[in-house]
Amino acid sequence: MVDLAPYRAVLASRIRAQRSHRASFRLDLGSSVLVGFVELAEIAVLFLTVDRLGGLDLAAIVLVFGIADMSFSLADMVFGHCDNLPTYLKAGTLDVFYLRPQPLLAQLVTSDISLRRLARAAVGLAALVAGLVVNDVAWSLANAVLLVLAVVSGVVTFSAMFVWAGGMQFFLVDGYEATNAFVYGGRYAATQPASVWGRPLVVVFGFFFPMAFTAYLPTLTLLGLPGSDWLPGWLGWFAPVAAVWAWVLALASWRTGVRHYQGGGG
């Protein structure tokens, strides 16, 4: 049985600290909502000029956006501060984690939590609900399970992306923006109709970083849409497999990164 008290103690204090800076916290909530809307607008604007994009109409893309954005925001809330690793590395703060009897990754993940991402997740949820309403979803137990599976797998997959990036940052340090290409680029990719991608993008964001599995493919399955040659509609059921794969990737990256750090690369 894992003792959770150490993690709870840190997180509880982080939550108290954030709630005590009310003005700043409210500002963060507000700006998160605004960012969410701007990102939705960015996609919606495209549908002013065309009716369908990559086989999806506006209603379907709103659903894709909703699932992807909510999953990403929840993952970001819990795992997003893995992005601070370069700062920790440069300040030597990571060494302090070595002096505590918990696994490093568990300590890093529970070292903070960004409650403001809840506001962002709320935008995603609103889009998700709107998407479910405006689309013709044939409700069944299977579809309900698929939706839950999609959201849970999405959160797990995006979380893995943050951990993967963390592992890479042991090598990149100042070049951490390169991982943004796949973490935040991945989020962007996840909100797109993946059928518009060329072969290289399908390889990178369809399978290697399984972004298409977080929202696009489950939406196809849910709406009974056909999809494309490489990303057929029934693949939506494989979202959990994609999530497991993402974590294989993440843990491999993290282990390599930590080895490199202990090997004196830092």
Binding site: L46, G175, T179, N180, A181, Y184, G185, Y188, Q192, L201
Partner: peptide
Amino acid sequence: GGLVANATFGLLKVAV
């Protein structure tokens, strides 16, 4: 790092 990010976002935007 910025260049990698720019190029990746560029390719995604090209697609859509």
